[in-house]
């Protein structure tokens, strides 16, 4: 083999790059976090939990279009209780702790929804005395 001095370090760098997740995790990683269930004691979500886990972002996007573009502010009913279609007016009514619910998953999945640039988390809403 020629040019061992550059090729072997090069190969080592390559292998380190490819195996990055292995040595970075060090063969053990924190388990997936468990999002906190609604503290208000509600038992059901607007759809099945399985559906929500996979599709909630698309549902929110559809709802937003429904409300803001098509003026379709239909009400969703869960266990006899009515909620207005919306992020703060539905989701956050039950999932009152964004930090322990939404963020728990989102940090793990490395998503950072920009919704909260404008919408208020329940905590912020409480401190500002608003509802939305």
């Amino acid at each position: 083999m020629y040019n061992k001095g550059t090729i072997i370090p090069g190969l080592i760098i390559f292998v380190l790059f490819v195996t990055f997740p292995i040595w970075f995790n060090g063969l053990s990683a924190a388990p997936a976090p468990k999002p906190e269930m609604p503290p208000g004691g509600e038992k059901k979500c607007v759809e099945s939990a399985e559906y929500m886990r996979a599709n909630h972002m698309q549902m929110l996007n559809d709802w937003r279009d429904n409300v803001l573009r098509d003026d379709n502010r239909t009400v969703v009913e869960v266990e006899g209780k009515k909620y207005r279609k919306g992020l703060q007016q539905a989701c956050m009514q039950c999932h009152t702790n964004k930090e322990k619910f939404c963020d728990n998953c989102h940090t793990y999945a490395a998503v950072n929804p920009y919704c909260w640039d404008c919408h208020l988390t329940p905590k912020e809403a409480a401190s500002k005395g608003g509802t939305r």
Binding site: E50, R53, A54, N55
Partner: peptide, 12 residues
């Protein structure tokens, strides 16, 4: 085709 595409599960 998000059905059953739960990123939390896939990340696990």
């Amino acid at each position: 085709m998000r059905d059953n595409i739960d990123i939390m599960n896939i990340k696990q």
